[in-house]
Amino acid sequence: MLDNLVILQYHHVSTKTPASTSIAPEKFAEHLAYLYRHYTVVDLFDAIKALRAGNSLPDKAVAITFDDGFDNILLNAHPLLQKYNFPYTIFINPQRIDKDRNQLTWDEVKQMAQENVRFANHTLDHLHLLNREYHNGEKESDAQWLTRIMYNIDQAETLIETQLGYSLQFLAYPYGEFDTFLAQHLEQQGYIGFAQHSGAVFSGSNFSALPRFPAAGRYANINTLKVKLNSLAMPVLDTNIHSPVVSEEGFPSTLKLTVAAADLNMNAMNCFFQGHLQDKKTIENLVEVSLPESFPLGRSRMNCTAPSKTQKGRFYWFSQPFFKANENQVFPD
Rank of each mutant, 00 (worst) to 15 (best):
N4V: 12
Q9W: 00
H11E: 12
H12Y: 15
V13I: 15
S14R: 14
S14Q: 12
T15M: 09
K16T: 15
T17G: 00
A19Y: 04
S22E: 01
L32S: 10
L35S: 05
L35C: 01
Y36F: 06
H38E: 14
L51W: 00
R52C: 08
G54V: 09
K60H: 10
A61R: 03
V62E: 05
F66L: 11
D68R: 05
G69V: 06
N72E: 10
L75F: 00
H78C: 08
Y84A: 10
F86P: 13
P87H: 09
Y88L: 05
Y88E: 09
I90M: 09
F91I: 02
F91D: 05
F91M: 07
P94G: 06
I97M: 11
D107W: 00
E108N: 09
V109C: 08
A113L: 07
A113M: 11
V117S: 05
N121Y: 00
T123Q: 05
L124D: 01
N136I: 01
N136Y: 07
K139L: 12
K139H: 01
A143Q: 15
Q144R: 14
W145A: 12
T147K: 14
Q155F: 00
A156M: 08
T158Q: 15
S167N: 15
F170M: 10
D179I: 02
F181S: 08
G193F: 05
G193H: 07
A195H: 10
Q196R: 11
F202C: 15
N206G: 11
A209V: 09
P214A: 04
A215M: 10
Y219I: 04
A220Y: 01
N221E: 12
K228A: 14
A233W: 04
V246T: 04
E249F: 03
F251C: 06
T254R: 07
A261I: 05
A261R: 10
N265Y: 00
C271F: 02
F272C: 08
D279M: 12
K281D: 13
E284H: 07
E293Y: 05
G298I: 01
S300G: 08
K312N: 10
Y316P: 08
S319H: 02
F322K: 02
A325W: 03
N326F: 06
F331G: 10
